[in-house]
């Protein structure tokens, strides 16, 4: 564990910035509260973000860039669309794209 004064899962922190470096394998998420932005360490990233790992261990929560997406595998591939939307090839739709239809009452278009 990091110094006692640091938040959970944090290896190095500072008073105004929160966590600067997380423990291995965790993701740092830059959490915004109005004016303030502090670093927190998470085992998996919050809604709308995905975890990017890199060899130096600077694993980081990065924003999904897909409309109407709650959870994503990478910037452009959604794994969970918002309620009521259909999913196809990692994107979210109001209705299945032409030529596609939902499969065995899931929200996936095939």
């Amino acid at each position: 564990e990091g110094p006692p004064s640091c938040p959970k899962g944090c290896d190095k922190c500072s008073e105004y910035n929160g966590c600067i470096k997380c423990n291995p394998k965790l993701f740092i998420f830059l959490e915004r509260n109005d004016i303030r932005q502090i670093g927190v360490c998470l085992p998996s990233c919050p809604v709308g973000y995905f975890g990017m790992r890199n060899p130096e261990g600077h694993n980081r929560c990065t924003q999904c860039k897909i409309e109407n997406c709650e959870a994503c595998f990478s910037r452009n591939f959604c794994t969970k669309c918002k309620e009521g939307l259909y999913s196809h090839s990692g994107r979210c739709y109001v209705r299945c794209p032409p030529g596609k239809h939902t499969a065995n009452n899931t929200m996936d278009c095939e």
């Binding site: 105004y16 910035n17 929160g18 830059l30 915004r32 004016i35 932005q37 502090i38 980081r60 924003q63």
Partner: peptide
């Protein structure tokens, strides 16, 4: 308006 940025927020892949 003032907005605080975490130092990591200045990296190229900053989302905000």
């Amino acid at each position: 308006e003032i907005v605080q940025m975490h130092p990591l927020g200045l990296c190229n892949n900053n989302d905000e």
